[in-house]
Design a binder for these strands. Structure first.
Length: 494
RNA sequence: GGCCCCAUCGUCUAGUCCGGUUAGGACGCAGGGCUCUCAUCCCUGAAGCAGGAGUUCAAAUCUCCUUGGGGUCACCA
């Protein structure tokens, strides 16, 4: 553990989507691997037969790709410790199974599912809701058990847990953790059909894949005791174990975040166009911190890696805070080079039917829109709303109509401004310079003038910078909206 | 319910291990500044150690109890 190469793994089962909690587990493993120059392994736990396996796999691969969590070994990249699909690892379980049978670390159990279910139900009704296997078959004489196995009687194999006893391990995050064996049952390792159960398979997989650190969610804490017992029965070195806190659902809900709460799937965030780096930062900040004061600048991935330490991971579960994600993502976008930001919003504009080049501003439109959107959005899907008024004839908001009617002399100066406009709409700055001149000449207050013009052009009292709006609209449309507004200001109905 | 884990502003957290701070930061919220509006950006503010015992000159920090939250109890993973 001291000098050997760090190997961690992310082992999701293909459920059809990548859960935020899973993504965070993947992130912590990835950060840990990168921080220690180790290897990040992706293993797919697909033994539970899935329906749309291909699709479910794609969700995992795509999610990891979007987050930038590239595995060093896995189904796509291969490696020396394959196969990386648990469903293909069947043959690798034989040796461990044989070893346990030989050492009598496991024993055959002939109890039927029905008997077990019945016993459980009985105890549950009585008052003790938990029922542990009573060791019925463990008490069978060895000769009898062997004979029944030889006779082909259906049976599972259970782990022979030392009794009395206790098991403890030193959790990377929680420290020493102990459980009394009285509270752990002789769990089934091999099903009646000979296949290994989850806890057994995980131990063998992790061991054969030379995993040095198991970092996973706290929901696995109780499994860990069972797995440690299996490692001990096998005489294998136990990897370091660390259990990170869970993500709880946002306010109205209780319990851990699940699919039904919404916002639990990575794809939702990808589709809405959150900044992946910002998303990763947000994810990392849930239940983990630098150990120093948070900065107000975007945090580069390298810094996340350089500062990553499980010692700074919190023990307590964390409720997720979506508005903080917005803030961080927006911050990342604001720090992006304008051209890059423009490229990013383009597809979202098109998806809304707002192809930039359709605007009179033509080729320059996208850059102009980007300037408007960059300080105003936190995720890309918000971009179209920033410029909707440019693509659609706006239905004027009531307060903008009111402003038109109440601004003194609006009808006149709107009309005059339309006539006075420069022939060429070049840059917003030029239009502003002209407008400043126009208002000075006519002794108009610039603020009042701008308010009316804004209402005229966008149908709203709140908009991107006025002359960006005008440039986007082009001269003809600007004139048209100005004159239309002048009529409203004069008292005529739209 | 048994077992396991946990507990600092509304939320995420620093501080806890090696007791002594005006208990720090971020998001959100409130106010102000900048400004053609909105937004960005900048400044300021309100807001917290779950409760109770104990140890100590001194407790957010150590111990115990209570309360509260979470997880887990399958021939699922």
């Amino acid at each position: 553990m001291v000098s050997e190469k760090v190997r961690v793994r992310f082992a999701p089962s293909p459920t059809g989507y990548l859960h935020i909690g899973s993504a965070r587990t993947a992130l912590f493993n990835w950060l840990f691997a990168r921080r220690h120059g180790g290897v990040f392994v992706l293993r797919i736990e697909d033994t539970d037969e899935q329906r749309n396996k291909t699709e479910a796999l794609a969700a995992i691969f795509e999610g990891l790709r979007w987050l930038g969590l590239d595995p060093d070994e896995g189904p796509e990249q291969g490696g020396d410790y394959g196969p990386y699909f648990q469903s293909e690892r069947g043959p690798t379980y034989a040796a461990a199974t044989a070893q346990l049978k030989r050492s009598e670390g496991i024993y055959p159990c002939f109890c039927t599912k029905e008997r077990l279910a019945q016993r459980r139900a009985q105890r549950g009704a009585g008052g003790d809701a938990s029922w542990h296997y009573d060791g019925h078959c463990r008490a069978l004489p060895a000769a009898e058990a062997a004979a029944r196995v030889a006779a082909g009687e259906p049976h599972t194999w259970r782990l022979k847990i030392p009794r009395p006893g206790a098991t403890s391990f030193n959790d990377l995050i929680h420290g020493p953790t102990t459980v009394d064996h009285a509270d752990v049952e002789d769990l089934i390792l091999l099903r009646a059909d000979g296949t290994p159960t989850y806890n057994f398979a995980v131990v063998i997989d992790d061991h054969l894949m030379a995993i040095t650190h198991v970092i996973r969610g706290q929901d696995h804490l109780t499994n860990t005791f069972k797995q440690v017992l299996i490692y001990e029965a096998l005489g294998w070195t136990i990897p370091a174990m660390g259990h990170i806190s869970l993500i709880l659902a946002p306010p109205p809900h209780t319990g851990k975040l699940s699919k039904r709460h919404g916002g639990a799937e990575i794809k939702e965030y990808q589709d809405k166009g959150y900044d992946p780096d910002g998303f990763v930062t947000w994810l990392a900040m849930i239940g983990w911190s630098f150990g120093k004061d948070e900065e107000k600048e975007p945090i580069p991935r390298e810094e996340l890696i350089a500062n990553f330490d499980l010692a700074n991971a919190g023990k307590a579960n964390a409720r997720m805070n979506p508005s903080k994600l917005d803030a961080i993502s927006g911050r990342h976008f604001r720090a992006a080079p304008p051209a890059e930001f423009a490229r990013k919003i383009d597809p979202y504009l098109r998806a809304a039917g707002f192809a930039p080049e359709r605007l009179p501003a033509g080729d320059g439109a996208l850059a102009l829109i980007a300037e408007c959107a960059q300080p105003r959005i936190d995720y890309l899907a918000q971009a179209p709303e920033v410029v909707r008024w440019a693509f659609e004839d706006p239905a004027p908001e009531p307060d903008s109509v009111k402003a038109l009617a109440e601004t003194e002399g609006a009808a006149a100066f709107l009309e005059a401004y339309a006539e006075d406009l420069p022939l060429e709409f070049t840059a917003p700055e030029d239009l502003e310079a002209h407008a400043r001149g126009f208002t000075t000449t006519r002794a108009l207050k610039f603020g009042a003038f701008a308010k009316a013009v804004r209402a005229a052009l966008t149908g709203s009292l709140r908009s991107p910078p006025l002359f960006h709006c005008a440039c986007l609209l082009g001269r003809d449309e600007t004139v048209r909206r100005l004159k239309h507004a002048a009529r409203i200001a004069a008292g005529g109905k739209a």
